[in-house]
């Protein structure tokens, strides 16, 4: 399968030539494939947000290039602008960007910037509201009357309405309750399966990422520390802990059991895997 986006030798330095100079990311190479969910994890300040802000051209790289379908996204101003409709970026706490009188109008902001017809916009608003799990009855209420979780769905629907081929979400579940998180991730997955888009989720939550990502990218100090399937990545548990990252809780339990001499596999990161692994050991002696 051909990569939809490719990042080659990407580096970014903030405030060059001032006392605040700071290298955020360093020589990143990455391919993004359609239909795949990529999870990006890393400590605060590891360069995750800087990396994804490059993908839709919000910030320009200090060196390196970003290709969308083989074309450099910075080749012209118009092209960078048009890329933003193909690479949808949902920033952290997107509920604070809502501004319209009604939920409908807010979701329609992106599509109307694309210059679509009113009919097309209407169709997209309804479609994306459904993808994001927003009840139709809410469309005519003010976004400021909604709960935090609902607001976030509206903000995400605002990006989905542009039908991006790559959907990037920065900490989409931060501050949501467990049910809300699971539901949100489920809706994002539904969008991916229906459209074949690539999804990139940046998160601190190992639990979320362990269950929903096909590939994981671990960033540390502006560089890629680990990249691979969750199996591969979580088998490097010591390295993850040393980088100041946590493991899924179930992995901690498995590690603790192993430390007590029970033989279990290395990369267990979901509850169902743990159940299988423990059952297959044939039980433990109780003296």
């Amino acid at each position: 399968m051909n990569a939809i986006m490719s990042i080659r030798g990407l580096s970014h330095v903030y405030s060059p030539k001032t006392p605040f100079e700071c290298s955020a990311i360093n020589n990143i190479d990455l391919d993004i494939y359609p239909g795949e969910t990529l999870g990006i994890i890393g400590h605060t300040g590891s360069g995750k947000s800087t990396l994804i802000s490059h993908l839709n051209g919000l910030i320009k790289p200090s060196s390196g290039e970003i290709l969308y379908d083989g074309e450099n996204i910075f080749k012209s101003k118009e092209f960078t602008h048009s890329i933003r409709f193909k690479v949808g970026l949902v920033l952290q706490y997107p509920e604070y960007q809502l501004f319209e009188e009604t939920v409908y109008k807010d979701i329609a902001y992106g599509p109307s910037n694309m210059g679509l017809s009113d009919d097309e916009i209407e169709q997209r608003v309804y479609e994306s509201a459904e993808f994001a799990g927003i009840d139709k009855s809410l469309l005519l209420s003010s976004p400021f009357e909604l709960s935090g979780g609902q607001k976030r769905r509206v903000a995400i629907a605002g990006i989905i309405a542009m039908r991006p081929k790559v959907l990037i979400l920065d900490e989409p579940t931060a501050g949501l309750d467990p049910v809300g998180r699971e539901d949100l991730l489920y809706h994002i997955k539904k969008y991916r399966d229906a459209t074949g888009a690539a999804v990139i989720i940046v998160t601190h939550s190992m639990e979320d990422i362990a269950r929903h990502a096909d590939k994981l990218l671990v960033m540390n100090g502006g560089e890629i520390m680990l990249y691979g399937t969750p199996d591969e990545v979580f088998s490097h548990s010591e390295e993850l802990l040393n980088a100041g990252l946590d493991l899924p809780q179930i992995t901690h339990i498995i590690k603790a059991l192993k430390a007590r001499g029970i033989s279990l596999p290395d990369s267990v990161y979901t509850v169902s895997q743990a159940v299988d692994a423990i059952l297959s050991t044939g039980g433990v002696d109780h003296d």
């Binding site: 802000s53 919000l58 602008h81 933003r84 920033l91 902001y109 910037n113 694309m114």
Partner: peptide, 9 residues
């Protein structure tokens, strides 16, 4: 940035 991501110019 957020509004630019939605195509604002």
């Amino acid at each position: 940035s957020a509004q630019k991501s939605r195509g604002a110019s």
